[in-house]
Each structure stands twice: as structure tokens, then as C-alpha cells.
């Protein structure tokens, strides 16, 4: 089962390595991890996508909580939330396919952020399903490069339990 875990940490050096070391040392999975400063520059937020059965995920959240530099751990599994990921894709469609490609990008509300003689770079954000669907559709146009940020998540108003 996939879990999205949000981890509020002290913005100190070595914290990322404490977290990643915990995952590797105890054999937990990391599917993606993204980190950034919060409004308070002394605090960073990590969003970790991991998987495991209930017991493993319970251990993951407890073990994270045990690290001294970690302020708060939230497993979004129990919370109504929205998730987004940003992907940049460089595509080189044939001349005849360009219009069609741009149309697809537009349908997915992708933005062309760079274009040259050979390639377009498209920026797309969305949840897992949307991004997966987009990638599937544009594969035939020739993906040259592909980069994604990893998911971030935020709770909906009221932190209502599902």
C-alpha cells in the first residue's frame, strides 16, 4: 500500500541523511522524496512516498518521530488531502505531429516553457493519474528527456478524517 508521509524537520545539515539513512538502514522503501523550506526558514518539509503493510508504515512513522530533528510526522493515508507533482518533459515531435502534440499538452493544461527547432519542453503538474495518463499519450511523439519533482501533498481544510 502506498503512503504519502509528510515530515516537518529542523532545517539543519545532516537531517536529510538521517531520514534517508533510517529508510535504508531499516529496509524501508522510498518511492520519492522531495524537500523544501517552509515559510519558517528554520524548518523544512519533506514529502516521502513509501509503501508497505500497516505494520511497516506504523514503524516508519514511529521511527521518523524518534529522530531528534524531526518535529512532526503526518501520514496522509488517514487524512483527506491533495497531491501534486511537477514534471518537465522534452519532446521532439515530427513536424507533422507538432499541432497534435500541442493540442494534447493543452488538454492536460501543460505549458510549453521552451521551444527550439527540434524540441518542445512541456511543464505539467497534477496528481499521479493525470501525469501517468499524459506520459502515456505523448510517448509516441518521442520523449528526449524527462524529470519529475516527486510528489508533494497538503491536507484539505479541516484535516477531516476520511
Amino acid at each position: 500500500m502506498k503512503h504519502t508521509i509528510s515530515v516537518l524537520v529542523e532545517n539543519k545539515f545532516g537531517v536529510l541523511s538521517r531520514v534517508s539513512g533510517l529508510f535504508s538502514g531499516r529496509g524501508f522503501n522510498i518511492e520519492s522524496l522531495s524537500v523544501g523550506e517552509t515559510i519558517d526558514p528554520a524548518v523544512s518539509l519533506m514529502t516521502i512516498i513509501t509503501s508497505g503493510d500497516d505494520r511497516i508504515v506504523e514503524q516508519i512513522t514511529k521511527q521518523l518521530n524518534k529522530l531528534i530533528d524531526i518535529i512532526k510526522v503526518v501520514d496522509f493515508m488517514e487524512i483527506d488531502h491533495v497531491e501534486r507533482e511537477l514534471v518537465l518533459i522534452k519532446v521532439s515531435p515530427r513536424k507533422t505531429d507538432k499541432a497534435e502534440f500541442l493540442k494534447i499538452a493543452e488538454i492536460f493544461r501543460g505549458r510549453i516553457i521552451d521551444s527550439g527547432t527540434q524540441t518542445f519542453t512541456v511543464e505539467i503538474t497534477g496528481d499521479e493519474k493525470k501525469i501517468a495518463a499524459f506520459i502515456e499519450l505523448i510517448k509516441p511523439y518521442g520523449i528526449k528527456e524527462f524529470v519529475r519533482t516527486g510528489k508533494v501533498a497538503i491536507a484539505r481544510e479541516g484535516l477531516k478524517k476520511k
Binding site: 545532516g14 541523511s17 539513512g21 538502514g25 531528534i68
Partner: peptide, 14 residues
Amino acid sequence: IVGITRPCTKHNYL
């Protein structure tokens, strides 16, 4: 040593 002892200390500091 901070890197080396990270997994075997409760916490460590440089």
C-alpha cells in the same frame, strides 16, 4: 564520524 555514527547514536552533533 558524525556520518559514521549516525545510525548507532541516539543523536549526534558536529
